[in-house]
Design a protein around this nucleic acid. Structure first.
Length: 586
RNA sequence: GCGCCCGUAGCUCAGCAGGAUAGAGCAUCAGAUUCCUAAUCUGGGGGCCGUGGGUUCGAAUCCCGCCGGGCGCGCCA
């Protein structure tokens, strides 16, 4: 039966289903070569239908030229003969419902324990490389809460993809070539002068006012003295830009570290340009008639008075569904953000099989052009997905927190992490699907109630851990026991209901990774925690259902085995989210 | 005007590559502490899944139109 490399129960049953279909082909019930792609084997919504259900008979009816019930009966006969299957029935339009034996579920619990941290890991990625670019905040200041959700979603996604058999590169694109870094350099110059005793007064409109630039100015003053106080900015602008960006990246890296986020690669836009990549891309695109010199139409909607038609090199993004063609260079000859960005994506595509960008929803309008450019430059060979992450509204005491970048009065990521903790921030950011707006209420995310999934899931894990402690106090030492020798026949069908939910973890992770939707982990964990809390509370009415039963060490051991398997699943899920499981709550 | 996202219980949201009687939490009502954290649990009430078509054995899910809401829209980043 269970031999070779360990298989989870869904994988095992899927293999059995395939073998049964092979048998039907051999017996002439099914023609050979039917597409089995649409066949599913999944838990039915209604648990009373059994443990697993397959639509195989309905899906194959057309190709087989036989009614679903006929196919279902033949298939049911094959499947019913399996040891693991206790009961088969055919229902509705032709569903085949399987009820597995208790021993099959007991076996799955052992599988969870045997695989441990790897229960849920898969190789659906087949070792292909996925590049996930996330955060990529402008290097002009510390991280603020506007960056937070994309950071967490991207990081959890990367983690999930790795767990699902991809090689993952976590990348940060440093926008160090635009006008905003000149502004940064000038803002730092002001702080530099200030450090040398100049009275700078109010920070002028158009420069970054934040105090975080003060130490950068001081460091430059200490290093260069008053050499750059007066005189042409050509003498210092490039130097200050470099130093300021480096300092900002240090701040950003430190902020990300607070969230447990570490990128593998920081790629500089300026370096991309210095290496001539945009120019090379332009030549290629011109050769393929995807870039031409043309004049943009005036913008629709609100009419701008300062609109002037200018001839620019334009990318034919309108051929790919964009509203209009997009310039890759400005009228002063420098590259637009888009012009550099397409070259950057081309570069990334050379070293990965698939690209994923995590962007804020405010950049939604630019998705089409970059997708079009990437498709053109890679010949459509590299998968490219842009995941948009919607805004987070910060609430304190039910009131929206006002933020203004201008005054420097934005809520920093570091402040929030300090206030509520890394794990609360990470978990909360994953409790909505990425493309739905969400509220982040400072009071609610730290609430210790079941309304707060962060707490609720962690509580389940802590509860699982505390049971082993309590049992030890009562003289049943689970940690020291020989786990293979524990007799799981003490677990009945009710107990094994938890195993049924736990067993769906691997397929849930796979589907979440495939769909690139890390929030599904959070919802699953919440469901598992609920089932676990419910199971635990059965002991209130019926003492024989308690976990710790000092007078019955064997039964206690079996219950602890189950408890610890659930703890393992909770841990594996939390790990994917980048959240530390807690063993104890105070 | 155009593009993207969204419309599911009173509120906040899930709904797993279409599946069987649509789920959870909050709120509300009724219950449960001889036990491992009641920081929890059990049960009730509450829905034309925005709307009209289409695809098929089967649609909240896929396609098209409409209605309603959010966001974005210049050579910015």
């Amino acid at each position: 039966m269970r031999q070779g490399k360990p298989m989870t129960i869904y994988a095992e049953m899927a293999a059995h289903l395939n073998a049964a279909l092979d048998a039907l082909e051999k017996g002439g019930v099914l023609p050979a070569g039917l597409d089995r792609g649409p066949i599913t084997l999944e838990p039915p919504r209604d648990a009373s239908h059994g443990d697993m259900a397959t639509n195989a008979a309905m899906v194959l009816t057309k190709g087989a030229g036989k009614p679903p019930r006929v196919l279902a009966e033949a298939l049911a006969a094959e499947l019913g003969a399996l040891d693991a299957v206790r009961w088969v029935d055919i229902a509705g339009p032709g569903f085949i419902n399987l009820t597995l034996s208790d021993d099959a579920w007991r076996g799955e619990l052992r599988q969870i324990q045997a695989l441990g941290d790897d229960y849920g890991r898969s190789n659906i990625g087949g070792g292909t490389t996925v590049n996930v670019e996330y955060v990529s905040a402008n290097p002009t200041g510390p991280m603020h809460m506007g960056h937070c959700r994309g950071a967490v979603v991207g990081d959890a996604l990367a983690q999930m993809l790795e767990y699902s058999g991809h090689r993952v590169v976590r990348e940060y694109y440093v926008n160090d070539a635009g006008g905003q870094v000149d502004v940064l350099a000038r803002s730092v110059h002001l702080r530099y002068c200030e450090a040398l005793g100049a009275n700078v007064g109010e920070i002028p409109e158009g420069l970054y006012p934040g105090d975080y630039l003060v130490p950068v100015g001081q460091a430059l003053a200490a290093e260069f003295g008053d050499r750059f106080v007066s005189g042409d900015d050509g003498a210092w602008l490039a130097l200050f830009r470099t130093r300021a960006v480096a300092a900002m990246l240090d701040l950003i890296r430190a902020d990300l570290a607070l969230l447990g986020i570490h990128h593998d690669l920081f790629t500089s836009e300026a370096a991309i340009q210095a290496d001539g990549l945009p120019a090379a891309a332009e030549i290629w695109l011109r050769a393929h008639d995807l870039v031409y010199d043309g004049v943009l139409e005036a913008p629709k909607g609100e009419v701008a008075e300062d609109w002037e038609p200018v001839e620019l090199p334009l990318f034919r993004s309108s051929q790919f569904g964009d509203d209009q063609d997009r310039p890759i260079k400005k009228s002063d000859g420098s590259w637009t953000y888009f012009g550099a960005d397409l070259a950057y994506h081309h570069e990334k595509a050379k070293r990965a099989d698939a690209l994923i960008d995590i962007w804020g929803a405010d950049h939604a309008g630019t998705v089409k052009r970059i997708k079009a450019a990437v498709a053109a430059l890679t010949g459509g060979k590299t998968g490219f997905d842009v995941k948009l992450v919607q805004m987070v509204r910060l609430l304190r005491d039910g009131e929206p927190v006002k933020m203004s970048k201008r005054s420097g009065n934005f809520v920093t990521l570091a402040d929030v992490v300090r206030e509520v903790g890394k794990d609360v921030v990470r978990f909360t950011m994953l409790t909505r699907k990425a493309d739905a707006q969400m509220d982040f209420d400072f009071a609610r995310v730290v609430e210790a109630t079941k309304d707060n999934p962060v707490f609720y899931v962690n509580y389940a894990h802590a509860r699982a851990a505390s049971m082993a402690r309590r049992a030890a106090e009562a003289g049943v030492d689970y940690a020291a026991a020989d786990h293979d020798a524990i007799d799981l026949s003490h677990l009945d069908t009710v107990d094994l209901g938890l195993a049924r939910i736990a067993a769906t973890f691997p397929r849930m992770v796979e589907s979440a990774a495939t769909a690139r939707e890390p929030h599904r982990i959070a919802f699953y964990l919440n469901d598992l925690a609920a089932a676990f809390h419910g199971w635990y509370n059965l002991g209130n009415d019926d003492p024989s259902r308690r976990v710790v039963q000092a007078e019955n060490a064997e039964r206690t051991m079996a219950k602890l085995f189950l408890t610890s398997a659930i703890g393992q699943i909770l841990r594996n899920g939390l790990h994917l989210m980048g959240v530390e499981p807690v063993d104890e709550m105070r």
